[in-house]
């Protein structure tokens, strides 16, 4: 395919960064105003004392809210809406939760190992009632390690698009189209990293994150099916329809 010009890369970076900021759910200014307020001990205990199914439902609702912003992000990415509808659905079904985990580092307080959740900053212990401590720990570890790269908003935007436009997803009908889009997005990501004078290893570190994201998402699916085996009615009647559609 014809070489991508510098101007085209700049244009792609601009479009994807703008799409990211328009759909990022929490603006940086909002985050700063929140002054990283964490849950008080009695609030933590009230989450811990929730029945398992109630905490699962709350988390499913929060994940679904975040995913809807990711869908809007995807719709604004140059070229995504030109893909066939099947592939748009395949990419979002497989990648939306991965982008949610990437975006999580924007609302993560590394010093206190806490993530913005349900109004305040929550440590892993808030999620104890889920019965998924191993997965929660891995998700927090991932957020902390992504935070340590101190990505800028445009770097995060490009990395999110790169994760979403994965040409190796199964069930893609026009794999080549997605490959072209992903390659251009990767070039744009490299372009941004160079423009921001990032050291060389950052792109490779980001590539390694992709494998971790895949693992986190498959473990989420495993935990969900284990939960649903015990509480089939709760999932059917109380979980958000979009969540069930994506992960059911």
């Amino acid at each position: 395919s014809p070489p991508v010009s510098m101007a085209e890369l700049d244009h792609l970076v601009q479009i994807i960064s703008k799409s990211h900021l328009e759909t990022c759910q929490y603006l940086r200014e909002e985050l700063q105003q929140m002054s990283w307020q964490s849950f008080l001990q009695d609030e933590v205990e009230s989450y811990q004392n929730k029945p398992r199914e109630a905490m699962w439902q709350l988390c499913a609702v929060k994940i679904t809210e975040a995913i809807q912003y990711v869908v809007e992000f995807a719709k604004r990415i140059d070229g995504f809406m030109d893909l066939c509808q099947n592939d748009q659905i395949v990419l979002l079904k497989a990648g939306s939760l991965e982008v949610v985990f990437v975006r999580m580092c924007r609302v993560f307080d590394s010093q206190n190992n806490a993530v913005y959740f349900d109004g305040k900053f929550a440590g892993p212990d808030v999620f104890r009632a889920l019965g998924c401590d191993d997965l929660i720990t891995s998700v927090f570890d991932f957020a902390k390690s992504l935070c340590s790269l101190h990505l800028t908003e445009d770097e995060l935007a490009l990395f999110s698009a790169f994760v979403l436009l994965s040409a190796d997803r199964s069930w893609l009908q026009e794999k080549l189209q997605v490959e072209k889009l992903q390659q251009k997005t990767q070039l744009a990501l490299q372009h941004v990293l160079q423009k921001n004078h990032r050291e060389d290893g950052v792109l490779n570190k980001l590539r390694c994150k992709v494998a971790v994201l895949r693992s986190l998402c498959s473990r989420h699916t495993e935990k969900l099916s284990a939960f649903r085996a015990v509480y089939p009615d709760i999932v059917r009647t109380h979980f958000p329809p979009l969540y069930k559609e994506l992960f059911g």
């Binding site: 979002l92 079904k93 979009l242």
Partner: peptide, 16 residues
Amino acid sequence: KEKHKILHQLLQNSTS
């Protein structure tokens, strides 16, 4: 597409 009606609808909606 049939199995993903909600996602399909979200994709059809104008970018809100």
